[in-house]
């Protein structure tokens, strides 16, 4: 028996909105630790890694490890039926081929349930090695989304370069070039508005705008985003999901032929 209850169903809906551009279908691995998902986009350039801890749920029960393959478009349809303030309860029997989502309104005056068919998906789990990153940038997630959106107009790629002075985002293309520089600004009163850089050594890497733009669909999940970079290693873009876990995106850098 698997059962997970989340008072803020909108959090799960935001997670879904954040990954549905990259993934058509994915397997949710349920265990007593919580719900995990790891999947590559169809071009195998980026990797999505979701971790929702069991103790972040309002109720969590998982008697037997369970892998639920889901079509994310279908799952999106189910969550479209939920109200913004609804509580969601996910339920599946052991070895079941369906999962049930029950939505309850705040006042308990409306209860709806939707049963969705599960899929058997080929699972390919990648081992992500521990990396000592050259730099770790934390910045407001809205600012990151804005910069990626703005610079995407100039070219297909964005160079992110980080030094002790700050972080610079650059793009160039047919119409010209664009550069955005951010200095470190520690705001002790409003931590979420700070830009902080933890630098071991300067690094500059190039990434495809298309993927960076997709990652920023996770902006509603978190005030801050964490970018971890190291030469010849995929970029990690991490959004903390308050009290529940995190959503990470990994993106292979563009390199010279």
């Amino acid at each position: 028996m698997f059962e997970a209850r989340l008072v803020n169903s909108s959090t799960f809906r935001k997670v879904l909105d954040a990954i549905k551009d990259l993934l058509n279908e994915a397997s949710f691995d349920c265990s007593e630790n919580g719900i995990q998902l790891q999947a590559m986009d169809s071009s195998h350039v980026s990797l999505v890694s979701l971790n929702l801890k069991s103790d972040g749920f309002d109720k969590f029960r998982c008697d037997r490890n369970l892998t639920m393959g889901m079509n994310l478009t279908s799952l999106g349809k189910v969550f479209k039926c939920s109200g913004a303030d609804d509580t969601v309860t996910m339920k599946a029997q052991d070895y079941a081929d369906t999962v049930t989502f029950m939505f309850e309104s705040k006042k308990q005056d409306k209860i709806s349930d939707y049963e969705m068919k599960l899929m058997n998906l080929d699972q390919e789990h990648l081992g992500i090695p521990d990396t000592e990153f050259s730099c770790i940038i934390k910045m407001p997630s809205i600012e990151f989304a804005r910069i990626i959106r703005d610079l995407s107009q100039f070219g297909e790629s964005i160079v992110i370069s980080c030094t002790k002075e700050g972080v610079k985002f650059s793009a160039q293309g047919d119409i010209g070039t664009g550069n955005v520089k951010l200095a470190q600004t520690h705001n002790f009163d409003k931590e979420e508005e700070s830009v902080t850089i933890d630098l071991q050594e300067p690094v500059a890497l190039t990434f495809a705008c298309q993927y960076l733009n997709s990652f920023t669909k996770a902006t509603p999940l978190s005030n801050q985003v964490k970018l971890s970079m190291c030469e010849n290693v995929p970029l990690v873009v991490e959004y903390q999901i308050p009290e529940l876990g995190h959503l990470r995106f990994y993106l292979a850098p563009k390199i010279e032929e």
Binding site: L126, G127, Y250, A252, P253, K254, I255, E257
Partner: peptide, 14 residues
């Protein structure tokens, strides 16, 4: 020009 490797080239299959 720049080229993009697969994420699989960085993270090996378990």
């Amino acid at each position: 020009s720049k080229h993009q490797k697969s994420i699989r080239d960085y993270f090996k299959t378990n």
